[in-house]
């Protein structure tokens, strides 16, 4: 009947959300879910196998527990905690300024901070190598100006932390800006009018209302640091081994795909769990759409 063809025609204007979601969803199903399943499957294959037609086994997970991999997990977690705390301290004043203070300058500041994300991480980290190197920019300046040497900076844990803070700063900052700008000034004024102190206003009004932004910023950074690879390798040398490094060497150097897969599964499970907690608490329509 004419009515039914009309109905299907009108769906374009009425509810084509499903159609619009399809291309990207199908692509990610093939490109994201597929590889993840593959990693999961490989993690149950016997050590050093390069195909999936073996008898499934738990040996990789058991050997991970027996080996000292917990140390890499510990370092990754420790780095993630330290970096997130440092970044909150560093970013909060800037985010506050961008949300409430800079007005027309806020766009410029946003651009200046966003541009480095678009420059290859390797190049920027290499810049830090040049600065921290023995006879590098910092050491060389100190020597020629004050005669003091600062040669042992590169390939240390603080250098790694510096690199991580440097690379992930925008990922903490931007969600924080969104979070803080979600708090209307009138609410703070009302709280102050009702007799709240500066600290009480922060704790009772600003913090809870900007929480979605803080959580997204904190967790995004946490998860990214957890899986970071280049910082520890380029700035840390052999100082510590983080978990992504272990995974990479299991796949490449040791040519042990099942072991690398099992480690990946553990890392994915850990990150996934944290992200799941985040998504349960945050309404994306409100944070991104300011609805």
């Amino acid at each position: 009947m004419a009515g039914t063809t009309q109905n299907s025609k009108l769906q374009w204007l009425r509810n084509p959300g499903v159609l619009a979601a399809l291309p990207a969803s199908i692509f990610l199903l093939i490109g994201f879910a597929g590889p993840l399943l593959m990693v999961g499957a490989y993690s149950f294959m016997p050590s050093r196998s390069f195909s999936l037609n073996q008898i499934p086994t738990f040996e990789n997970y058991i050997s991970i527990i027996h080996d000292s991999y917990y140390l890499s997990f510990f370092w990754s977690l420790a780095m993630a905690v330290i970096v997130v705390i440092l970044l909150f301290i560093i970013c909060y004043p800037i985010a506050y300024g961008m949300a409430k203070l800079f007005n027309k300058w806020a766009n410029l500041v946003t651009a200046l901070i966003a541009v480095p994300i678009l420059i290859s991480e390797n190049i920027r980290l290499f810049g830090w190598v040049l600065i921290l190197l023995k006879n590098g920019i910092l050491d060389g300046s100190l020597q020629s100006l004050f005669g003091v040497s600062a040669s042992g900076l590169l390939f240390t844990v603080p250098a790694i932390i510096l690199g991580l803070v440097y690379v992930y700063l925008p990922f903490t900052l931007f969600p924080l800006v969104i979070g803080i700008s979600m708090v209307p000034d009138t609410l703070k004024e009302a709280a102050s009018d009702l007799g709240a102190t500066r600290w009480q206003i922060f704790r009772e009004v600003e913090l809870p209302l900007s929480m979605p932004g803080l959580m997204i910023g904190g967790i995004l950074t946490f998860v990214l640091v957890l899986g970071s690879l280049a910082e520890a390798k380029i700035l840390g040398g052999q100082a510590i081994v983080m978990i992504a490094d272990d995974i990479e060497s299991a796949f490449t150097f040791a040519q042990n795909w099942p072991k690398g897969s099992a480690l990946s599964v553990l890392l994915i499970a850990l990150s996934g769990f944290i992200v799941f907690l985040l998504f349960r608490r945050v309404d994306l329509d409100r944070v991104i759409g300011r609805r």
């Binding site: 993840l36 998860v223 796949f251 795909w257």
Partner: peptide, 14 residues
Amino acid sequence: FFPQAVLGLAMLLW
């Protein structure tokens, strides 16, 4: 939210 290095390796397997 996914570690890129792990994603790259997973792709390699895939």
